[in-house]
Design a protein around this nucleic acid. Structure first.
Lengths: 125, 125
DNA sequence: GGGACCTTAGCACGACCGTGTCAAGGTTCC
DNA sequence: GGAACCTTGACACGGTCGTGCTAAGGTCCC
């Protein structure tokens, strides 16, 4: 009855494209936490494998890292955090009595700088 | 009348507790972007000052950094990102047919490891 | 009982975060 | 016209992220 479909780290790594090291790291981040065998071996089942593959797609599709997804997870598990962050972002982003679509433009520009900087691929390094 | 209440970086720094350097950094992150004088000077008005103070509280209250707030901002400005991330987090987080409140506990434990690691304040450093 | 797996812990390393500081040049204003 | 601001740009440095690798030890299974 198909209870045999639990892969070990190495096997899971092979079928998902992640390295065993990364699988453990991802677990640490709380993103994909497989159950364990009585002796402590990680047991990757179909759900985990699926999740690992979609995670891979997610990171590839957008410019995000594991830490960011981890933060998103925190946002939906720590109610206070979400409330405060969302509150801050909502409040006064641009004052309603001072937005002549000119400041707004400048704001857009600034925020479009891929998170922080990346002003020019300057050959400094 | 009262249009004179635009502070310069240094003044804003003094009244908000941030350093001028940080004010520029925060602007770069798109979190607080003050308007500019014709000659390019940053003009911090009451709204910006308020925002800077609350930002400070926000960072102090929870264990988050500017990058994380910046990411939250991206989540609410880049629709595709939010959709995908939220989708991933919602999907299969723990399979509905496999959650005997035992795995759940283990899951809780994992996620409670403050984002990544911090396993023990081991006196390594 | 021995080889092939697994576990955790640690070092290493480049890239970025959060900060400070310094340099070179423009503004303000007396 | 000079002092005291401002601007951007850069170097620096400890900290974390993402990743690999190695070491010391348990487990599986033939």
């Amino acid at each position: 009855m198909a209870t045999t479909d639990a892969l070990t780290v190495q096997e899971a790594a092979d079928t998902t494209g992640w390295s065993p090291r990364m699988l453990r790291y991802i677990e640490r981040a709380g993103l994909v936490v497989p159950p364990r065998s009585p002796s402590g071996y990680r047991l990757y089942g179909a759900p985990e494998l699926q999740r690992l593959r979609t995670l891979r797609e997610l990171l590839g599709a957008h410019d995000v890292g594991l830490a960011e997804i981890g933060f998103a997870l925190r946002m939906r598990t720590e109610a206070g955090l979400a409330r405060d962050v969302d509150g801050w972002l909502s409040a006064t982003a641009t004052r309603p009595d001072e937005v002549p679509a000119d400041d707004w433009l400048r704001f857009e520009q600034a925020k479009h700088m891929r998170l922080l900087a990346r002003p020019e691929p300057s050959p400094t390094n």
